[in-house]
Nucleic acid binder design. Sequence first.
DNA 1: TGACAACCGGAGGGGCCGTTCCGTATAACA
DNA 2: TGTTATACGGAACGGCCCCTCCGGTTGTCA
Lengths: 201, 201
Amino acid sequence: MARKPVAPRVLRADAQRNRDRVLEIAQAVFAAEGLDVPIDEIARRAGLGIGTLYRHFPTKQALVAAIVHDRMSRLADQAEALAGAADPGPAFFALVELLADAMRRKKDLGQAITGIDMREVTAAARTRMTAAMTRLLERAQRAGAVRGELQYEDVMALVSATLPSPYRPAGSPARLLAVICDGLRPPPRPAAAPRKPRARR
Amino acid sequence: MARKPVAPRVLRADAQRNRDRVLEIAQAVFAAEGLDVPIDEIARRAGLGIGTLYRHFPTKQALVAAIVHDRMSRLADQAEALAGAADPGPAFFALVELLADAMRRKKDLGQAITGIDMREVTAAARTRMTAAMTRLLERAQRAGAVRGELQYEDVMALVSATLPSPYRPAGSPARLLAVICDGLRPPPRPAAAPRKPRARR
DNA sequence: TGACAACCGGAGGGGCCGTTCCGTATAACA
DNA sequence: TGTTATACGGAACGGCCCCTCCGGTTGTCA
C-alpha cells in the first residue's frame, strides 16, 4: 500500500530538482524500454535512492501515470484538432497514422493504451482521445471514406498491429499501415465477394 | 557413476495416469487463460502435488512446449495442405482466417506465436508453418491476389491484431478480418489516392 | 505377500519487484 | 551559526513464482 506523500506548498530546492530528474529519466527509459523496467532501475539511473523516488511518486503506477498522462494529453489535443477538420476522410487517416507513430515511438504509450492497466489513471486523457476518435470516425464514415460498420475498438486494434512486440519483430510499419488504411476504406463492391485476381500477364 | 536414466521405457500405471491428467488440464487451462497461469495452479486443478508435475515436466517451458508444439503441428499440417492448393488466392485468405481463428480459440497458441519466447521449443512446427505461409503468400502474390510488397512478418502482425489482449477488449474479429483481408489485396489503383468524399455539409 | 524401485506431495529455497521504514543529511531561515 | 522541518538513501519486508528436495506412499513382480 502506498502512503500519500504530504505535499507542502513548495518543495525544498533539492527535492524539486530530484523530482524533475526522476521524471526526466523515467520518461526516457519508459519510452525506450517500456513500462516493465523495475523502479530500482529508474532510481539508479537517476542517481537517487529508491526512497527518494517513492517520496515523490508513492507508487510505480503514479510515476507511470504522470508520464503517460502527459503524453496522452498531447495526443488527445491533436486528435481533437483533427476531429474538427473540414475534410474528415483525410483527417481520419492522419489520426490513424499519428497514433501508430506515437505508439511506436513511445513504448510506454503503446503499452498503456494497449495493455497494462493504466485505465483509471489516464481516464481523463483517454476519454478525450476516445471521444475525438469516435467523432472523427463517424464523420469519415458519413462522408463515405471509411467502412460504415467499424467501431472505435476495431480501429484501435488495427493500429496496435503496427506495434512491435517482444521477440516477434513486427512487419514494416509503413507496409502494415498501407494495408490497414486501404482495408479501412469501404470495399469497392458492397457485396463481400472476394475480388477476382487480374489475369496473369 | 551413472545415475538412473531419466525416462524408463514404461511408466508405472499411476505415473502414466498423472502425466496424462497434467497434460489434459494444462491444455485446457492454457487455452482458456493463457500461459501466465502459475504452475502451482495447474497442479492444484489436476489434484496433484507440484513435485509430481515437475517430475513429468522438468520445467514450465517443457510443459508449455508439449502442448503448444502439438497445437502448432496441427496448424502447420493445415497450412501445408493449403500451400499446395490449386488456387493460391483463396487458399491464402483461408490460411489467414484459419490462423486468426486458431489463435483466438487457443490463447496459449496466440501467446506462443506472438510473444512469449517459445522460439526454441516450437522450432520444428514453427519452421513448417513459416515455410508454408511464405510459399502460399508468394504464390498468391504472383497470382495477383495479394499485394506484392508484403512479407511473412507483415501478415503475421496483421493476424495478431485480431487477438484480444488483456484489459483491451479487441474489436470484433469478423470486422477486423474483413478490413485486413481487403487491405491485403492489391489496391485498385496503383496510386494510393484517398477516395474523394462526396461534397456535403 | 514381501521387498523394492518408482512415484507422490508439499514445504521451502531463491530470485525478482514493489513498497516501507528509519537513521542520517541538508536546505531554509532567524 | 544554530535549529528544525524536510528530504535523502538503501536495507529489509512481503508477495509472487519457478523449481528442488526428501520423507512417506504405492504399484509391481517374484
